[in-house]
Simulated scan of single mutants.
Amino acid sequence: MKYLFILLLCSICMLSCQEKDELEKANQFYNSGDYEKAIQAYDQHLEMKPTHEIALYNRGRAYEELGQYEEAVADFRQVIKINPRNIGAYLSYGKHFYREKDYENAAFQFEKAYKLNKSSSQSATLLARANHKAGKVENAMEYYNIAINNDKENAEAYLYRGALKLHLNQAGGCNDIKMAKNIGYEGADELFNEYCK
């Protein structure tokens, strides 16, 4: 009986190690940009653990990198079902809507992420961008301000807040764009030269 228990324990340990190895291998493929191999490895891992939140999310990101958006969205939605507090899944799901120019639904997903972590500059920036694109300029300005208050080095928020201020003929637009330029945000130089010199 004692040996049977030890044999069972060893089998469980081997299975657990195999699952961990598959996930590590999948992550290595993803990090090296080999998204097709990453998806295959995530698939193998998910055969053993079909509700593994991290593997599902990472597979979704790999699908996204390959432009396979339907598969990516299915994984992000599954992650949200498993863990309704997964900020990354809401952000990725929101980016899908943003890419599709469905700014209302993008803002809806970004807002869910923001509400889960109100100190996230990234969530606030994405929420601002979606509102900006949807023409809700007051909401956009509010969330650009929040994003910058949460991270004084958020060049993207400075750039787009500056562009919005210029569009609305408000003071400080060029200062924001200059700040984005000083932080090193790509495209800030051109915008500054075009509108602020």
Rank of each mutant, 00 (worst) to 15 (best):
residue 39 I to E: 06
residue 28 Q to L: 11
residue 152 K to V: 15
residue 95 K to N: 14
residue 115 K to Y: 08
residue 175 N to S: 09
residue 191 L to F: 12
residue 118 K to W: 05
residue 112 K to I: 03
residue 56 L to G: 08
residue 129 R to N: 04
residue 8 L to Q: 07
residue 154 N to S: 07
residue 80 I to V: 05
residue 122 Q to W: 06
residue 96 H to K: 12
residue 99 R to G: 14
residue 192 F to V: 10
residue 194 E to D: 15
residue 158 Y to E: 03
residue 156 E to S: 08
residue 48 M to Q: 15
residue 68 Q to R: 11
residue 64 E to M: 14
residue 13 C to F: 14
residue 55 A to Y: 02
residue 93 Y to T: 12
residue 27 N to F: 06
residue 30 Y to Q: 08
residue 126 L to Y: 12
residue 31 N to E: 13
residue 171 A to E: 13
residue 131 N to E: 03
residue 168 L to N: 12
residue 150 N to E: 07
residue 93 Y to D: 11
residue 167 H to L: 13
residue 195 Y to V: 06
residue 172 G to A: 03
residue 67 G to Q: 08
residue 170 Q to A: 04
residue 90 Y to S: 00
residue 181 K to C: 05
residue 197 K to G: 04
residue 155 A to C: 05
residue 86 N to A: 00
residue 117 N to P: 06
residue 40 Q to S: 11
residue 102 D to L: 02
residue 183 I to Q: 07
residue 171 A to M: 10
residue 128 A to E: 01
residue 187 G to D: 11
residue 74 A to W: 00
residue 2 K to W: 07
residue 68 Q to A: 08
residue 80 I to E: 01
residue 60 G to Q: 09
residue 114 Y to V: 02
residue 44 Q to S: 14
residue 129 R to H: 03
residue 15 L to C: 10
residue 66 L to N: 09
residue 72 A to V: 00
residue 88 G to A: 14
residue 116 L to V: 02
residue 96 H to E: 05
residue 45 H to D: 01
residue 170 Q to E: 14
residue 158 Y to R: 01
residue 163 A to P: 13
residue 94 G to D: 04
residue 136 K to R: 07
residue 44 Q to E: 15
residue 36 E to C: 09
residue 132 H to M: 00
residue 35 Y to V: 05
residue 12 I to E: 05
residue 124 A to K: 00
residue 86 N to R: 10
residue 72 A to Y: 05
residue 16 S to T: 08
residue 97 F to P: 04
residue 110 F to Q: 03
residue 179 M to R: 13
residue 88 G to M: 11
residue 45 H to R: 15
residue 108 F to P: 01
residue 71 E to N: 09
residue 167 H to A: 12
residue 5 F to E: 15
residue 140 A to T: 05
residue 70 E to N: 11
residue 9 L to W: 08
residue 157 A to E: 02
residue 76 F to D: 04
residue 35 Y to G: 07
residue 9 L to T: 13
residue 141 M to P: 05
residue 42 Y to R: 12
residue 90 Y to G: 01
residue 11 S to I: 14
residue 140 A to W: 01
residue 98 Y to K: 06
residue 179 M to E: 15
residue 98 Y to W: 10
residue 187 G to L: 07
residue 47 E to V: 13
residue 23 L to H: 04
residue 109 Q to H: 15
residue 58 N to T: 12
residue 25 K to A: 12
residue 47 E to A: 09
residue 152 K to E: 11
residue 124 A to V: 05
residue 39 I to W: 12
residue 72 A to Q: 04
residue 40 Q to A: 15
residue 18 Q to Y: 14
residue 148 I to S: 06
residue 37 K to C: 14
residue 197 K to S: 12
residue 37 K to V: 11
residue 108 F to C: 00
residue 44 Q to A: 13
residue 157 A to G: 06
residue 14 M to W: 12
residue 101 K to D: 09
residue 128 A to T: 00
residue 42 Y to H: 06
residue 178 K to W: 00
residue 171 A to T: 07
residue 5 F to D: 15
residue 20 K to P: 06
residue 177 I to L: 02
residue 78 Q to A: 08
residue 160 Y to I: 05
